[in-house]
């Protein structure tokens, strides 16, 4: 044996993710200790992969598609009227969304010990697919982005991250529920809006739009 043990590198090696796979493979061949460890890890993986995986029961897809049909029907009707529709599609909403995204990102301190913020920062960008400002990424299809998502992309926030932030806010923030309960008349909404900055109002309108669409 001519080099150090590779215990710590074995999990990534066995996952096909090690940088120096050849060196590790050579070491395992020559070192019974590391070979034993590798065998134990392999056995664990095999055991996990052999665990039963429940499948969709008959009727599952039908139930999903019934919900989807409802959604498709709803998509054909305008779900927002008047000022809400205006708010939801303007750049104001986009700017507010980015502000929210930026705010969430600043809260990220790397590893969250409690795992309380599943989407703390946008996922790592793939440089090959990254949109740069003023430049549209060439895709197979000619996509039309909704203005806010186009803006989000140009601002370096992925649509997935933006979507995830909205989902998170809707899922995680009881204040939204309370707010909607508290401000469910038009007059009260007007009062609420009057006390919000444009950005806040735009972001709120978007959340409300998603909420109205979704529930």
């Amino acid at each position: 044996m001519n080099n150090r043990h590779v215990f710590d590198e074995l999990p990534a090696f066995l996952d096909g993710e090690a940088k120096d796979a050849e060196r590790i493979a050579r070491h395992i061949e020559a070192c019974p200790d590391c070979a034993r460890e590798a065998a134990a890890l392999r056995a664990l993986s095999q055991g996990l992969r052999a665990l039963p995986r429940p499948e969709a029961r008959p009727g599952f897809r039908g139930r999903v598609m019934a919900r989807v049909a409802e959604e498709a029907e709803r998509k054909r009707e305008p779900f927002l009227a008047g000022r809400w529709a205006h708010w939801a599609v303007t750049g104001v909403a986009a700017a507010a969304l980015i502000a929210v995204a930026g705010f969430m990102a600043t809260m990220d301190n790397g590893e969250d010990p409690n795992g309380s913020l599943p989407i703390a920062a946008p996922p790592p960008a793939d440089p090959a697919n990254e949109a740069t400002p003023g430049e549209t990424v060439a895709y197979e299809e000619d996509w039309e982005f909704a203005p806010e998502w186009e803006y989000a992309l140009e601002s370096g926030v992925s649509a997935e991250a933006a979507e995830a932030i909205l989902v998170l806010l809707l899922e995680e923030e009881p204040w939204l529920d309370d707010m909607l309960t508290a401000y469910d008349t038009e007059r009260e909404l007007d009062l609420l809006l009057a006390n919000m900055t444009d950005g806040e109002a735009g972001a709120f309108a978007m959340l409300l739009a998603d909420y109205a669409e979704g529930r």
């Binding site: 599952f60 989807v68 909704a146 992309l153 649509a159 997935e160 979704g214």
Partner: peptide, 24 residues
């Protein structure tokens, strides 16, 4: 719970289609 979550997930994805970008 798994079936409920799966169903809800597909509905969410459907709802997000207009905003999805073919990334990754």
């Amino acid at each position: 719970d798994a079936e409920d979550l799966a169903q809800e997930s597909f509905v969410r994805v459907y709802r997000a289609l207009d905003r999805l970008t073919p990334r990754a």
